[in-house]
Amino acid sequence: MAETRTQSAPIPAQRKPEGGGIPVAEFRDVTKVYDGGSVALERVSLKVGRGEFVFLVGPTGCGKSTCIRLLMKELEPSQGELLIAGRELSTMPREKVPYLRRNLGVVFQDYKLLPDRTVAANVGYSLEVTGESRESIRRKVPDILRLVGLSTKLHAYPDQLSGGEQQRVSIARAFVNHPPLLLCDEPTGNLDPETSIGIMQLIYRINRTGTTVIVATHDKEMVDKMRRRVIELQEGRLIRDQAAGMYRPDESTSEFAIRLRGEMGIGAEGHPN
């Protein structure tokens, strides 16, 4: 159960990017102890290669969110090193953090949209921040909203949208800068299974453009069915790092969705362990 099978995928590893180059994100013996003394992470080491799709699973309080927040440099590790694209985060000066975050897309369970701004303004805000010209914002925002399937909701306000639609807006905001790494903290936590599949499909589509994706979720069942690399945490310890078998890296988005829907209905059919 707890063994680490990295290259046991039945379909031979076509994940060419993982081997070569600097890992997009790397944990080296990272320990995080909160001020109260509770240990969130204990000596976690892992590498995420370019273009990978990684699930971070485990029960609530196992340290998933801590991982995400460490990668955003919202928290500092108590011990160990954390690298993003080969860059050590703890030595990064405070004033460089905004530039790090522009290269990270982050999606949260509670969407974190600004309620008094339209969908377009919410998405445009992250372009505004990088000093993009107004014309380029006007061009890019409808494009990205078309990608997430919300081209008709440009001028709607967040409270006029459903949960799934709001999450799509937040994904659009995270991806509009085309960051090399997308972090998702429980992106489907508030959504029903059908909507969740849609969101997962969207995240998968983003992954297919070459973006590395790390998704933290407690929905273990769905993760197992998606057959991507799974990293399982329990009480802050890494207990499984598994390139879950039987997935084809070049699977198209619709194939992916069809398979996912099928498996969600059928049950634990293709379970590797």
Binding site: M72, E95, R101, R102, L104, Y125, S126, V129, T130, N177
Partner: peptide, 16 residues
Amino acid sequence: RREVEVMKLVGATNWF
């Protein structure tokens, strides 16, 4: 503060 949080999330510099 929620607004500020989102601003920081998307990489706004402090002066921004």
